[in-house]
Design a protein around this nucleic acid. Structure first.
Lengths: 209, 209
DNA sequence: TGGTATCCATACGCCTGCGTATTGAAAAAG
DNA sequence: CTTTTTCAATACGCAGGCGTATGGATACCA
């Protein structure tokens, strides 16, 4: 049958979820503006007729895909939040976990591509607010002043956003320079005093103000 | 001098440069895909007829704008390079200078938006390679190993890219958190041992201020 | 005065993508 | 065995954007 790369579309009806999923993949790879009905239908082995039965407009599909991402997001953060008591360790684990979720990072970078799109903005804004607030809280738990915590959280978040942006724009160059785990470790060492093991810097290098 | 955005255009012939400049502005604001001939002509107060006299295709305009940016880039880097002898100070000055050039930062962030565009890729790749190489060199001048220098350079560059990405995608949120100078100072403190002040402990670059 | 080069307007054809309308087919319900 | 519901194909209209063709208009030259 349709010997295309995708599943062979053997007369099995297409679910709404299938469209959303395909759209999400497309967003992660080429950004929101790439979500076009006809090309997408071609990939799925159907025509527009199918799409406009499942969705009222193209915007509805985009919105659905973004909504799905936001749900995943929240779930993830909450699940990792409950855990660790020690603030230092929690912060480091948080950092590593964030960078380890490559899918999410790539999707986020792809969203940033379409940041001017009014459909995307609210999702991007909420995600940024949520993550930054979380980061600030985590840094404050170390005993830092709010200003200091804000600054470090922004730095950490920018390093996150920047890494995935660079990975998207020029993956060869980035990979030639260092690997992910080394990158994150370095970031964590720069922002969070190492937790107990080995002699960390004498006394308390952290200034609370 | 076109007084403001779209006025004048009083029978004075339009130069090729005017098109390139307008295109560059557009790229910085909305990305490469926004560079469309007819809307641009509307802004400049002419029609397509003018454009296709100065340029063969739309691609030619885009290339011209990117080329102009790359030239500026190189000039800037070279001009700042000659200066400082002390590697610590040089690195910090470099960092501050990079972040202070808001125009360039915004243009870079806008380019990253269109990183998938085959027209943009080479320019983006060259800029990234050049800057990273420069950063690595600067860190090695501090006496760091190549691996360590690579790591820190990537971190610094990601912080740069990330900051301007966030400034582009969610400026309100970023500005609510901290200001630019504080951000850069923090980054410099984290990556570069302060020039004179008390020596930080050997391993951890976190420095009391 | 006439010619030539420069700069721009207008009109056209083409393609892509959105959304609608209509028809069709197959499964489920009756 | 009908009827209804579900899903999809086809055909259409419309808009925006690229590139071409052609015809002014203005200025500079000879």
């Amino acid at each position: 049958m349709t010997s295309a790369k995708k599943i062979s579309r053997i007369a099995m009806p297409l679910s709404r979820e299938a469209w959303v999923k395909a759209a999400s993949r497309l967003i992660a790879q080429e950004g929101v503006q790439a979500v076009a009905v006809e090309p997408l239908a071609l990939v799925l082995g159907v025509t527009k007729g199918s799409f406009y039965w499942h969705f009222k407009t193209r915007d509805e599909l985009i919105h659905a895909a973004l909504e799905a991402w936001e749900q995943d997001q929240s779930a993830d953060v909450v699940s990792r939040y409950g855990g660790i008591a020690d603030p230092r360790r929690r912060l480091r684990v948080l950092l590593f976990a964030a960078f380890e979720d490559l899918e999410n990072g790539k999707f986020f970078a792809a969203l940033a591509v379409s940041s001017q799109d009014p459909r995307v903005q609210p999702y991007l804004r909420r995600a940024t607010e949520r993550r930054l607030a979380f980061g600030i809280e985590a840094f404050q738990a170390l005993g830092l002043s709010e200003a200091e915590a804000r600054g470090r959280a922004l730095l950490a978040y920018a390093a996150y956003a920047g890494y995935f942006q660079l990975l998207r724009t020029t993956p060869e160059v980035v990979r030639a320079v260092t690997d992910l785990s080394g990158y994150v470790r370095r970031l964590a060492d720069a922002l969070v005093p190492a937790p107990k093991r080995g002699r960390s810097c004498a006394g308390s290098p952290i200034v609370r103000r």
